[in-house]
Design a protein around this nucleic acid. Structure first.
Length: 108
DNA sequence: CTATTGACGACAT
DNA sequence: CATGTCGCCAATA
C-alpha cells in the first residue's frame, strides 16, 4: 500500500515545490530567485512551469511567486484568485502589478 | 530524437 | 512605462 502519489515530473519540479513551501506570508519571491536558489539561475521559466504542475495548491503557496519586474505572472487557478490571496496576505496589488514590490520581496 | 509550448528574464526600441 | 525580440530550461506530443 503505497500512499505515495505519482510524481509526474522530474526532480527539478519537486525542488521548486519544496522552496515554495518556505515562503512566508506577506512576502513574494521571483521565479528567478527560486531558480538561483535551486541551482539553476537561468531556469526561471522552468520554475514557472513547475508551479503550474504543482501537486497540491494549498500545500504550495505558488501565489507568492511573481515575475522579476514586479508583475504577478500567472496562476493556475486564475490570476484574479492570485491577487485576492496576495491581498489577503497583506501584499498590495495594482492591476497585475505588486505595489512596493522591492519591499515585499523575500530573500532566501 | 525533434518540435512546440509555457505562471520567465534581460535588453532594445 | 509598454511592447517586441532573443535566450533560457523543463515537460509534453
Amino acid at each position: 500500500m503505497s500512499n505515495e502519489k505519482k510524481i509526474k515530473t522530474g526532480e527539478f519540479n519537486r525542488k521548486v515545490w519544496g522552496v515554495l513551501k518556505i515562503i512566508p506570508a506577506g512576502r513574494v519571491v521571483t521565479y528567478k530567485a527560486i531558480a538561483e536558489f535551486i541551482g539553476s539561475p537561468n531556469a526561471a521559466r522552468a520554475v514557472g512551469n513547475a508551479c503550474n504542475l504543482n501537486p497540491d495548491a494549498p500545500k504550495v503557496p505558488c501565489h507568492r511567486v511573481v515575475k522579476s519586474d514586479g508583475s504577478l505572472g500567472g496562476y493556475a487557478y486564475g490570476l484574479k484568485k492570485k491577487i485576492a490571496l496576495l491581498m489577503k496576505e497583506g501584499v498590495k496589488v495594482e492591476k497585475a502589478r505588486v505595489k512596493n514590490f522591492k519591499k515585499v520581496i523575500y530573500r532566501f
